[in-house]
Simulated assay, not measured.
Amino acid sequence: MHIDLTHKIALVSGSTTGIGFAIAEGLAESGATVILNGRTQAAVDHAIATLIARFPAASVRGVAADLGTAAGCEALFAAEPQVDILVNNLGIYGTQDFFEIPDAQWSNFFEVNVMSGVRLSRAYAPAMVQQGWGRIVFISSESGLNIPTEMIHYGFTKTANLSVSRGLAKRLAGTGVTVNAVLPGPTLSAGLEAAFADSAKKAGKTIEEAATAFVLAKRPSSIIRRAATVEEVANMVVYVCSQQASATTGAALRVDGGVVDTIA
Rank of each mutant, 00 (worst) to 15 (best):
S140A: 15
R39Y: 03
G72I: 01
R54L: 09
T248H: 12
S141G: 09
E208Y: 04
K8D: 08
R254D: 09
L76G: 03
T17Y: 03
V238Y: 07
E29D: 14
A234Q: 09
A203H: 00
A190V: 07
A227S: 13
P186A: 15
D66K: 00
V114Q: 01
G174M: 15
T17I: 11
A53L: 02
I23D: 09
I52K: 14
G91Y: 02
S141Q: 06
A195H: 02
T206D: 04
G117C: 07
H2D: 14
V260L: 15
S189R: 03
V137A: 02
N88D: 03
S30E: 07
I3E: 02
H46L: 09
F138Q: 09
E29G: 04
G72E: 04
S165I: 06
A197S: 13
A104G: 03
W133S: 06
Q130F: 04
A10T: 08
A211F: 01
S246V: 07
D66G: 02
R54C: 06
G132S: 12
V230D: 08
A22P: 06
V12Y: 08
Y93T: 03
P126A: 12
G62Q: 00
L162S: 04
A264K: 10
E208N: 01
G14H: 03
A58N: 01
C73G: 06
F110E: 01
A194W: 00
N89S: 07
T149R: 10
A58P: 04
F98N: 01
P102H: 01
V44L: 01
A70H: 08
H2G: 04
N161S: 11
R226E: 10
K205M: 12
A43C: 00
F98T: 12
S15E: 04
A79D: 03
P56G: 09
A234Y: 07
D97V: 07
L192W: 14
A53V: 03
T69Q: 04
L120T: 05
T149G: 13
F156K: 04
H7A: 11
Y124K: 07
S140I: 10
G72T: 07
G18A: 06
P220M: 05
S222W: 06
V137D: 08
I223W: 05
V137R: 07
G117D: 08
A211G: 15
W106Y: 04
I147S: 06
V129Y: 10
R171K: 15
L67D: 00
G31M: 11
E150V: 13
E232I: 06
G72P: 02
